[in-house]
Design a protein around this nucleic acid. Structure first.
Length: 410
DNA sequence: CCCTGTCCACAGTAGTCCTG
DNA sequence: CAGGACTACTGTGGACAGGG
């Protein structure tokens, strides 16, 4: 028996049955009638009514309750839950850790949620699990929840207070020093934990050099996706251990170099990446810093403009429809084909070829408006046949812009 | 009516640590 | 050392809404 989430198309099918409707009544007739069964001698009658009976049989399902002994360890409880509940909702380690913490520390959930809300008000609506991870970092110097059972209330409360200070530092650093004003521009929220812990380790007094290096590290870690590939927790723990042992920012940067081989951004790296890539987020930051504006309203590009007209859209410079015949959808979604403009501007361009819509815009706005988004405006690159050459050229310019934006390593 | 991008759910994939 | 676990990323397909 398969359950499927309803869609309008599915609901049109005569065989489609709403589970909630079946439970409301014991009468099969309306469902059978809808499926086109007119009488008892229809060969499908028995088959269909048996299916409905099976579905109603769920009501009689016997639920089993296992009470676990108090002596079981944190790991064992998680393990048992995961196995028993293998097809249900996943229990994340942070969920269980939260349960353990709230059992010890009355009303802590409210405290956590209050802070979560305060962060959301500054534009950073973060998962509660991330705040708990940050708490773990401050309580234990590492990010995993395994030893949450051995922490006492005093330690947790002290760490929580420090964790809040650290998180506030991290958010302010992100907004003011990096220009990252939304979690949508972060490739992973783990970055915040490292920044928070680092600020704390320096007692929130950073030297000029440290602040500049930390900016470089954070931007590069975000652009390359340090915490976006597997084993992100292991990598986070490495960074935290480094900071705990009093390591300088340059050591964090060395780790980053070790992970990716090199720390400048090359044009080749941008190849075949799409909007979900970490580099795409940095691209937005770099273009905005370069003064990129919408081509009609001249509003500086931003994620949170209100109103459908001004809301940011990812504009295909060569619209998908123009490329459809000669290129695949993946090639059309290449980040080197994307620019940031408002919704209205984008829809006005619709499926017009760049050779048609770009030159008038360039005449009107001047080349700098397009240079800010690294868009080549040479007529020779705007033909569909030269799409590949356009991508190559724009990638080169984007890579250069990203490197300029992130700045030198030291 | 067609074109656009957004949103959502789901399935599958990759990299690395852990475990027996 | 193979396979499991974990996390986040990627791809897909349909519904939807705005605009020309």
């Amino acid at each position: 028996m398969t359950f499927v989430v309803a869609t309008r198309k599915l609901e049109q099918l005569p065989h489609w049955v709403k589970v909630s409707e079946v439970f409301k009544t014991d009468n099969d007739a309306p469902f059978l009638k809808r499926a086109g069964i007119s009488g008892f001698d229809d060969p499908r009658y028995e088959k269909y009514s048996q299916r409905l009976a099976r579905l109603r049989g769920i009501r009689k399902y016997v639920y089993r309750m296992d009470v676990l002994e108090r002596t079981l360890s944190y790991d064992e409880v998680t393990e048992i839950f995961v196995r028993v509940n293998s097809l249900g909702a996943k229990l994340r380690s942070s969920d269980l850790a939260l349960a353990q913490i709230t059992a010890k520390w009355r009303h802590s959930l409210q405290t956590f949620q209050d802070f979560q809300k305060a962060c959301a008000k500054t534009g950073f609506d973060l998962d509660l699990g991330l705040h708990l991870k940050n708490l773990m970092a401050f309580a234990t110097g590492q990010s995993r929840f395994q030893i949450v059972g051995s922490l006492n209330v005093e330690k947790l409360q002290k760490a929580w207070k420090e964790a809040c200070d650290g998180m506030e530092f991290a958010l302010n650093f992100l907004c003011s020093n990096l220009g990252i004003d939304s979690p949508a521009l972060l490739s992973s929220p783990f970055l915040l934990v490292v920044l928070a812990y680092f600020g704390h380790s320096r007692n929130y007094a950073l030297s000029n050099d440290e602040a500049r290096q930390l900016r470089y590290w954070a931007l590069m870690a975000n652009a390359k996706g340090r915490f976006s590939r597997g084993s992100s927790e292991t990598i986070l723990d490495q960074d935290l251990a480094n900071i705990r042992q009093g390591g300088a920012v340059s050591e964090l940067i060395d780790r980053l170099r070790l992970q990716f081989g090199r720390l400048d951004i090359t044009a080749e790296e941008l190849e075949g990446r799409n909007q979900r890539s970490a580099l795409f987020k940095t691209m937005f930051l770099a273009f905005r810093a370069a003064g990129a504006k919408d081509w009609r309203s001249h509003l500086t590009i931003a994620l949170d403009h209100s109103g459908a007209q001004h809301r940011l859209q990812f504009h295909h410079i060569f619209p998908k429809a123009v490329l459809k015949t000669s290129f695949t959808a993946r090639e059309a979604d290449d980040i080197a084909n994307l620019a940031f403009i408002g919704g209205k501007t984008n829809r006005a361009i619709s499926d017009k070829a760049p050779a048609v819509y770009l030159p008038p815009l360039v005449d009107q706005l001047g080349e700098p408006a397009f240079a800010a988004q690294c868009i080549p405006v040479e007529a020779s690159l705007l033909e569909v046949e030269s799409y590949k050459a356009f991508l190559l050229e724009r990638r080169k310019r984007i890579a250069a812009a990203l490197n300029t934006f992130v700045g030198p390593a030291d």
